[in-house]
Nucleic acid binder design. Structure first.
Lengths: 115, 115
DNA sequence: CGGGATCCCAATGGATACTG
DNA sequence: CAGTATCCATTGGGATCCCG
């Protein structure tokens, strides 16, 4: 998204971070990329429901914000790999406490495991 | 926003948390409420640019999600106070590492203080 | 295979006026 | 004061087709 739409993104760290991860699919993309580098078509399959246009758009925004790296291999058939930058990895870590909170309070309690 | 628009919000803590704080002004509201309870008109002034309709809407979403508490005082003139619930405070803490990341990497470096 | 170009829609949010 | 009601502008995102 545009930072312009995030009030306070120029003076508040949370708002600035939100501006970067805003976008319907970005956290899913972060999640997939944090595991290993992925190709375009791979991501399309891993993130069901996303359209090609939007996938390309959100990847490019993440790239612009320095979160993902786009590596183009000059082969045929074409191959492009997306991976997290160091900054992207840090973001992922910063998100972990938020994820823990969400898991603790918002997600349905997991069924107790039998001994 | 609606959880429905957040892919994975039913199984991923980060997505679930994002669903709760999604909304153009919610982090600003969290920021103001974390300091002390606030009245409606107070928030309207503290968060410049927000309209009454949107302020009311986002407050009610936060209330529905258990983040803010709405206390109505039966007086005249009417008075309503909004405050963070314990859950809201936890969310605020969970956001701190994200805020630190944003401050570190996205915000313009603060001018060095003279000794 | 990895996208760019278009067209379309629904949801979010802005402005303003009105009410208990 | 604390909202609701109404109307409207923006835009993120979906669908599809096309191209190197």
């Amino acid at each position: 998204m545009s930072v312009a739409r995030r009030p306070g993104a120029d003076h508040c760290g949370v708002a600035a971070a939100m501006a970067v991860i805003d976008g319907k699919w970005k956290v899913s993309l972060l999640w997939e990329l944090q595991q290993r580098p992925r190709r375009f078509g791979e991501l399309r399959r891993l993130v069901p429901g996303i359209s090609e246009k939007v996938l390309a758009a959100q990847l490019r925004e993440l790239e612009t914000d320095g979160i993902v790296h786009r590596e183009v291999y000059d082969e045929v058939p074409p191959r492009v790999e997306y991976s997290l930058t160091p900054l992207g990895r840090e973001l992922d870590e910063a998100l972990s406490s938020l994820g823990a909170w969400g898991t603790r309070h918002l997600l349905p309690a997991p069924a107790p495991q039998p001994a």
